[in-house]
Design a protein around this nucleic acid. Structure first.
Lengths: 165, 165
DNA sequence: TTCGCTGCAAAGGATTTGCATTCTA
DNA sequence: TAGAATGCAAATCCTTTGCAGCGAA
C-alpha cells in the first residue's frame, strides 16, 4: 500500500519557531526579525522550498530581506535539523522542511513540471532492508527518488502552482 | 533475488564507438577526432565520470581539447544513451557510463568505508513502477541509494579495491 | 557597548554561449 | 564548398563572501 505523506500541521509553527530559537540560543546566536520571517516563509510555502521562493515569500513580509540572509538562514535551519538539503535538479538546491508531525517518506518528481509527490510504501522499506541484508549489510538510511511523467497531461497543472510571478 | 552488477567489458570499446558514430550519423552530425577522444576517455576512467576528470584524461590523448567541447560531447553522449547524468553532489555533475554489458543497477554505500556495491533486484524495480503507477505517473527513471553498515567489519576491506590509479 | 547580523555588491565555480576559425562530409 | 564543430573568452546562474553599518542582548 502506497500512502501519501501528510503535510505539516499548522499548530507546529509555534513549536518550530521555538525549536529554532532554542538552537540559536544554544549556539549563542541571535534571534532576529529576518530569521523569524524566513522560518515563517519556509513553513508557509513548504515542505519543498528553494532559496528564490523563500526570498520572494519573505519579502512579502518584509521587502528588505536580502538573498544572502536567506541563504545563511537556510544553512542554519539545515544545521538545526529543520531542513534537509536535496539536489533534485542540479541547477538549484531544494530544501525539505522536516516537521515533527511528518513521517518518513520518499519522493516522486514529475519530469514535466517538477512537481514533487511524497509517498510512503511499507513493502518498499522492507524490501530495501532485505536487500541490504542479503548483501551483508545492515541498512541505516536510504535515498530514493522516482522520476516520472504524468499519465494524464492535465494532472500536470501543478505546473501553475510551481510558477512564480 | 539480488544480484551484483558486472563492470563493463573492455571488448565493448569498439561497440561503443560504433554506437556513438551511428547516433551521430542518424542525426546528420559529424564524427570528429575530439569526440572520439572524449568517448575513449569516458571508457578509460568510467563508470563514474565528471567533466573535469574527462577533460584531464582527454588532454593526455590530445592537449588541445577544450572544456566546452567536453561538455558538448557529454551532452551528446547522454542524449545517445551512453551516459546517465547524476547529481550526487550539487557542485558538480557526475555522469555514469552505461555500457551494454552493464545492466541497470542501484547503489549501496557502506557507511564505514564508502565502498559502493552495485546491485539489481527485480522485485524492487517492479515495486517502484507499481508505486509510480498508483500515484498516476509513468516511471521513467529512478535513483536509489542504500546507506548501510557492514555486518561483518572485515568485509569493509573493499576500500582498497575502490581506489583508482 | 559589543559583536553578531544584515544588505549590497563583488566574488566564485560549474556550465553554457557567441564568434571567428577549422575541418568533416 | 557548406555548415557543423572547435577553442577561447565572455556570459550565465546559483551560491558564497567581504565589508561597513545596524541592531540584539
Amino acid at each position: 500500500m502506497t500512502t501519501a505523506a501528510l503535510p505539516a500541521k499548522s499548530e507546529d509553527h509555534a513549536k518550530i519557531h521555538e525549536a529554532f530559537d532554542a538552537y540559536l540560543a544554544r549556539l549563542g546566536l541571535r534571534q532576529t526579525k529576518q530569521r523569524r520571517i524566513i522560518v515563517e516563509a519556509v513553513m508557509l510555502i513548504g515542505p519543498h522550498v528553494d532559496a528564490e521562493a523563500i526570498t520572494q515569500r519573505a519579502r512579502q513580509l518584509d521587502p528588505s530581506v536580502g538573498i544572502a540572509t536567506v541563504y545563511r538562514t537556510l544553512q542554519l535551519m539545515t544545521a538545526a535539523g529543520l531542513l534537509l538539503e536535496h539536489s533534485f535538479n542540479k541547477e538549484r538546491s531544494t530544501f525539505e522542511f522536516i516537521s515533527p508531525s511528518r513521517e518518513h517518506h520518499d519522493h516522486l518528481i514529475c519530469n514535466q513540471c517538477g512537481h514533487i509527490v511524497e509517498f510512503c510504501n511499507e513493502s518498499l522499506e522492507d524490501l530495501q532492508e532485505q536487500i541490504a541484508r542479503s548483501l551483508g549489510f545492515q541498512l541505516k538510511t536510504h535515498r530514493m527518488e522516482l522520476f516520472a511523467d504524468c499519465v494524464n497531461p492535465e494532472t500536470c497543472s501543478h505546473r501553475a502552482a510551481q510558477k512564480r510571478p
